[in-house]
């Protein structure tokens, strides 16, 4: 079996206990995806599977045969940053950097969820168009803990990208 990670095929034939997170970090040397808690409580391991953000620590690699995974390494490179990556640098949306790849993957998915009109807990109306107010962004990014406390700048970075895209 194999997973398609950032457009490349990676064979998996290991211990079925291997989480997608450990497969990425150990077997594929894609260490941009971080292990912060290993129990779905921090969001540092957020990746996109078939376009949706998930906690890669709480799923097994073996469950994703043939599926498409996008990690932070698949978004941009140092010489060719994704707009979100560039905005995080500009707005200092990070400090130690450990939660950052998860934040950025999460933000990317969030913008698409909003474009698809997915509501959130703080949405006043469940019908109608989703408008990403700062509070909407905060709620939708609350699955990504940042212990350094860069939240205010993270929101600013996302707002900038969002406004540029509109």
């Amino acid at each position: 079996m194999a997973l398609i990670i950032n457009g490349r095929e990676y064979a998996f034939e290991g211990d079925p206990r291997t989480t997608l997170l450990d497969f990425l970090r150990r077997d594929c040397d894609l260490t941009g995806t971080k292990k912060g808690c290993d129990h779905g409580q921090c969001g540092a391991c957020t990746v996109l599977v078939n376009g949706q953000r998930i906690n890669s620590c709480l799923t097994l690699a073996v469950m994703h045969d043939g599926e498409s995974v996008t990690t932070i390494e698949g978004l941009g490179t140092i010489d060719d940053l994704h707009p979100l990556q560039a905005a995080f640098v500009k707005h200092d949306g990070y400090q130690c950097g450990y939660c950052t790849p998860g934040q950025i993957c999460s933000a990317k998915a969030m913008l698409e969820e909003a474009a698809n009109n997915w509501p959130s807990f703080v949405s006043e109306n469940l019908s109608g168009e989703t408008r990403l107010t700062p509070d909407e962004i905060r709620e939708r990014m609350s699955g990504n803990l940042c212990r350094c406390g860069a939240y205010s700048n993270i929101v600013d970075a996302i707002v900038e990208v969002m406004e540029r895209e509109q």
Binding site: D29, T31, E73, L75, L81, T100
Partner: peptide, 20 residues
């Protein structure tokens, strides 16, 4: 901006457990 920023936002900054 931080000079270490691009490495951090692209996941290429390696933390202690991440050396192959």
């Amino acid at each position: 901006d931080r000079p270490d920023g691009p490495a951090k936002v692209t996941g290429s900054a390696r933390y202690a457990a991440e050396y192959a």
